[in-house]
């Protein structure tokens, strides 16, 4: 990667309970230069039959990304800042292994391009010291990008969690999910 101004003290914090489903993040995501104007963020109804609650999902940028491990074409890589990059366009063979293996359901397969695409934390912006597009437009700050000190001051009753359990698998990530104060892990099963 070229020389960057990536701010290592800034992190991504997601608070699902604040998502109002406005989809401003979807529109903003499509402005990201690294996606080629395709939106990579997910806003979906949790359980539409019983609730209007929506949830927002960005790439969690796992420490040991399953998507990169299951890629048969070595198309996904993690950089020195822990950002897991979208598929290398020359290598990706569009098999969807990453789409089906990601425990957070993040990568998207674009059928017309025969290519997997995913959030790379707006690398064109974050590498220049700016915040990702989605976090800059989220009206409820369900998506927040800043320092740990800032989030601790703003959300005194929350704890950022970046450890997850899916069945027998423990996954730790670069991106945090805001949980009730004192929580250290989010169990999904």
């Amino acid at each position: 990667m070229p020389e960057t101004n990536y701010q290592t003290n800034q992190e991504f914090f997601v608070d699902m309970q604040r998502c109002i489903g406005c989809k401003a993040c979807e529109m903003a995501c499509a402005e990201c230069e690294t996606n080629g104007h395709d939106s990579m963020i997910h806003v979906n109804y949790v359980d539409r039959a019983v609730t209007i609650q929506t949830t927002v999902q960005v790439c969690m940028h796992c420490d040991d990304p399953v998507c990169a491990n299951v890629c048969p074409a070595d198309a996904i890589s993690k950089d020195e800042f822990g950002v897991v990059h979208t598929a290398n366009t020359a290598r990706c063979i569009g098999c969807s292994n990453c789409v089906m293996a990601c425990p957070f359901g993040v990568p998207k397969k674009n059928e017309a391009y025969d290519l997997m695409m995913k959030c790379n934390m707006c690398y064109d912006r974050t590498s220049a010291g700016k915040k990702p597009m989605c976090a800059t437009v989220c009206p409820t700050q369900a998506l927040f990008y800043g320092t740990r000190e800032e989030i601790a001051r703003m959300r005194p009753n929350s704890s950022p969690v970046n450890n997850f359990i899916f069945g027998n698998e423990k996954v730790s990530t670069k991106v945090n999910i805001m949980m009730p104060k004192g929580t250290t892990v989010l169990r999904v099963d």
């Binding site: 997910h42 979906n44 359980d47 999902q57 957070f104 997850f164 999904v188």
Partner: peptide, 12 residues
């Protein structure tokens, strides 16, 4: 993928 995202939100 959609089911995984929803289950994560439900766990939350």
């Amino acid at each position: 993928p959609e089911g995984k995202r929803s289950r994560l939100a439900m766990a939350h």
